[in-house]
Simulated scan of single mutants.
Amino acid sequence: MNTPQTEYLLAGGGTSINALPKISLHDHLDGGLRPQTIVELADGIGLDLPETDAIALGAWFAEQSNSGSLVEYLKTFDVTTAVMQTTEGLERVAREFVQDLAADGVIYGEIRWAPEQHLSRGLTLDQTVEAVQDGIEAGIDDVRASGRQIKIGQLVTAMRHANRGLEIAELAVRHRNLGVVGFDIAGAEFGFPARNHLAAFDFLAKEFLPVTVHAGEADGIESIRGALFDGRALRLGHGIRIAEDIVIEREDDENTYVTLGPVAQWIRDREIALETSPSSNLQTGAIAAWGDELVDHPFDLLYQLGFRVTVNTDNRLMSDTSLSRELALLSDAFGYDLGDFEAFQLNAAASTFLALEEREELADIISAGFEEV
């Protein structure tokens, strides 16, 4: 059964944000577990937890994640990945993940996760991908049985601090017609540039498998440049530090006059999607150069300048959030309305790693859903 979903309403109109059709591009499988599931899976494998009550455990994750450091933030994943080392654990987590996305109004989601982190109990890389896909398909069946529809694609991820990039890229290509739609690298960004995985990116380019790269979260413009040049990234995971390549010349009461640097210009003009995750960006200190509140986030600047911004959760457990909540927070901070929300979802639809016809179908579903409000 799905966990209860908090209802978020658009200020002024009372419109349910949860009910709006949405697309999730940046959502980590090991960052979206239900606390009760962690408790039950941990009990089954004899794993000690910092808290054994589901509510207390959820609070622990949120507290630990508010460190202001990506490195510290990532340590919470030691707990979640520990209960995702068996076929049963992976299937259950993936199935509930899909259920929870659908309950929040998501009609298409790309779930990213790193198979190399799920091998400690004897599973092979291929077995982990198969287990997750089985869970995804079971979740889709559950959603369909409830009268709704959802599509899901896997983004197979390599850990950027490890040396298995090519092996994981080959894994992704083996499963490209079995649920996998793209490739990602994740983990500690600073000190681990995309070029470390150049062999993987060369292979993926030859195989025409789409790539997104975590960049512009814990490192700046050079990391983003590497994601574009070495990684051939079609999207940027977070990418918000591209704002460092934007110079504000002057502002008046109605306008902001800026100059874009070459990397920012390329990203905007080529419509390379930015997979922003507002709450997570606060927690990890990704926006520290601009402030420590959501209103300081460069999201609105990027949106107003015409960048292809998308809204995501990153890790729903760690940030105690949902896609509806992220939209509500942005609306509160910047005064966004339904038209803005629709623009964000259409940006996401255009940036999925699906075929053109499927992207157009998603856009039609989004527009129709917003027209019904």
Rank of each mutant, 00 (worst) to 15 (best):
I168D: 00
S146G: 09
G153D: 01
G165P: 06
Q154N: 14
V173C: 01
F183G: 06
R176E: 12
L155R: 06
I152L: 12
L178R: 10
E167W: 02
R144P: 00
G187N: 04
A172Q: 04
N163W: 01
V173N: 05
G182V: 06
S146M: 03
R160Q: 08
Q149H: 14
G182M: 10
G147F: 02
V180M: 00
R195M: 09
I168A: 04
G182D: 05
K151Y: 01
E167C: 01
F190M: 11
Q149G: 09
E170I: 03
P193A: 14
L171A: 13
V181F: 03
R164A: 01
A172G: 05
G182F: 10
R144A: 12
P193H: 07
A172T: 02
A145W: 04
L171E: 11
S146W: 05
V156N: 06
I185F: 03
V181L: 11
Q154L: 13
H161K: 07
R148N: 15
A188G: 00
G147M: 02
F192E: 15
G165S: 04
D184P: 00
G165F: 09
D184S: 02
N163I: 12
L178T: 05
R144G: 00
T157S: 15
S146L: 08
V143S: 10
N163C: 11
G153H: 05
Q154Y: 12
A158F: 01
I168V: 15
F192A: 06
F190K: 13
G153T: 02
A172R: 02
R160C: 06
V173G: 02
A188Q: 14
G165R: 11
I168Y: 09
